[in-house]
Nucleic acid binder design. Structure first.
Lengths: 148, 148
DNA sequence: TATTGTTATACTCTATAACTATA
DNA sequence: TATAGTTATAGAGTATAACAATA
């Protein structure tokens, strides 16, 4: 077979990118953390934690929706007290979305859950293999796979 | 930091599982292969190629929708001539979804595209690293990550 | 004139619940 | 009675296009 490695990675990716993989993971992660937190609001919260306070327009590409989508999701998070809106000092048209203390705590909890979940799944792996896996996986995603 | 490896894999996964990653990939893969082929019908075609002829109910979990969703998507593929329905000899309630010759050709083309796309993105990697990455990635997905 | 956040509209896709036929 | 495929319905979420305010 030509390009066997490409095919092997491809097959794994198809499984990993299934819609149900994403949905299951997010459902499990956000379980019991309040109604505001689900598959839709999680990426907004997560992106905000990764990059710090940003406007909806800035956040949109990272959240995977357009700015109207960010508005809708952020409003749910705001009602739940996880996010607040602040005027942007450098642009009076814009608002900055900022994680509240409770929002920060929730993000920390989410990250712990995810990391634990993953390591639990890899518990049967030989020692050191997880580390060896993490490095190229990280590089693979940093290369912005399938970017436009 | 506690469980650093878990956190590292987690961060990479969050990026990889973004809705836009999935959408972009499928859009690029199915480009120019006819209107019937898109993000929705691709998983049906792909699962069918992986497992051989199956009923809609059987296929549903792999396609990530319920059986009514499989019916809708399979009907689009049938109109396009990529899939045909055959009576199930062992159960007269069921129909088997079968790839046509054209469907098989399209799947082969899709697989080539995906594998090429991936290897192109990894072209800058040191020799042998792609192979080292493929093995644990495959194991990771085979372990049914985040299964119920 | 362009871009901000927000909202209303039209559209797509889904799961649910029906339905008939068969196990 | 339960399960097959299919279809209609209701609900959720999106992008698009508007809007007023600011750049």
């Amino acid at each position: 077979m030509e390009n066997a490695v490409g095919h092997e990675i491809a097959e794994a990716l198809v499984v990993l990118l299934r819609r149900t993989t994403r949905t299951r993971l997010h459902k499990r992660l956000t379980e019991g953390l309040g109604e505001a937190l689900d598959e839709l609001t999680y990426p907004v919260l997560s992106a905000l934690a990764r990059t710090g306070p940003r406007s909806a327009a800035d956040l949109a590409p990272d959240a995977g929706v357009d700015r109207s989508g960010v508005t809708r999701r952020a409003s749910r998070l705001e009602v739940a007290g996880l996010v607040r809106r602040e005027p942007d000092p450098s642009d009076r048209r814009a608002h900055l979305l900022v994680l509240t203390d409770e929002g920060l705590a929730v993000v920390a909890e989410l990250r712990e859950r995810l990391a634990d979940q993953i390591m639990a799944g890899l518990a049967a792996w030989p020692p050191g293999e997880a580390e060896e896996f993490a490095r190229p996986l990280r590089r693979f995603t940093v290369d912005e796979p399938f970017a436009p």
